[in-house]
């Protein structure tokens, strides 16, 4: 459902994403991993056609997200890293507004309930807690029963209970054929949700494969260590920084 070949995103002379290639089948989840600034968000905005990019192939459901956006985005949900809302917009208005953009939508009551937002309908979005706003952002990405979702740091700001609930929901949707591309800094989350991962380092793909592959190839016993090795986020570097500043 998603085919990307040699996608590059540049900001001036700086290459944020360098020749990224990946493909995704229905019911599959792909984790885009890397340190801050490694190019995860740029890769997502590039794949969505929001950010200007170079590519040899870029299709979603066999169509270009740039030239057939109307068609493609009917079945694609997106949660950007940062989701902002107009001042004074209430939860209910945010949902109504988003639902109006699509032909078919899910049961809103049920969604609000399962995202722990029932009873919050009349509250202004900008007065919600960080975690509630984040849950609303994910809810909106799923409001039209998409076949493919892009989730950029989906559980940042969520408490343990909310994270677990969201994982369960996503796993259920995945079992029903939902494709997912997600970024995360939590390796436990990646291990639970993702079938495959792509690790980026300064825009370059340094690893692509399953979680088990990553551990085997790096010679580490935990995925977190394997990730740290590939991504270049070594602990020694941080120790050096901490010692230096103290």
């Amino acid at each position: 459902m998603l085919q990307v070949r040699n996608l590059s995103v540049s900001y001036g002379a700086k290459k944020a994403v360098d020749r990224l290639s990946l493909r995704l089948k229905p019911g599959e989840a792909l984790g885009l991993l890397g340190a801050n600034g490694a190019g995860k968000s740029s890769a997502i905005t590039g794949m969505l056609g929001v950010q200007h990019s170079q590519y040899d192939e870029l299709t979603v459901f066999g169509k270009s997200p740039i030239h057939h956006r109307r068609n493609v985005f009917e079945a694609v949900g997106v949660q950007f890293q940062e989701t902002n809302f107009p001042d004074r917009l209430t939860v209910q208005e945010a949902c109504r507004q988003w639902a109006a953009l699509y032909r078919e939508t899910a049961d809103l009551e049920e969604l609000l309930h399962s995202f722990g937002l029932a009873g919050r309908e009349r509250q202004v979005v900008n007065s919600l807690s960080g975690g509630e706003r984040q849950r609303l952002a994910v809810l909106l990405a799923l409001i039209h029963k998409p076949k493919l979702v892009f989730l950029d740091e989906l559980t940042t700001g969520l408490d343990t209970k909310a994270r677990k609930a969201l994982w369960n929901r996503l796993l259920l949707m995945k079992a029903n054929g939902l494709g997912m591309v997600l970024t995360s800094h939590y390796m436990d989350e990646v291990e639970i949700l993702c079938d495959r991962v792509v690790i980026l380092r300064q825009g370059r793909t340094v690893f692509q494969g399953t979680v088990t592959d990553a551990m085997r190839r790096s010679g580490k016993t935990s995925f977190e260590d394997a990730y740290l090795k590939f991504s270049g986020e070594k602990e020694e570097d941080w120790n050096a920084i901490i010692n230096h500043s103290s």
């Binding site: 956006r69 109307r70 950007f80 809302f85 107009p86 988003w98 699509y102």
Partner: peptide
Amino acid sequence: ADYRHRRILQRFQVTPVP
């Protein structure tokens, strides 16, 4: 300016509605 600055327009760019 507000909708652009807060990337609200960008959110609309990834929906079927321009």
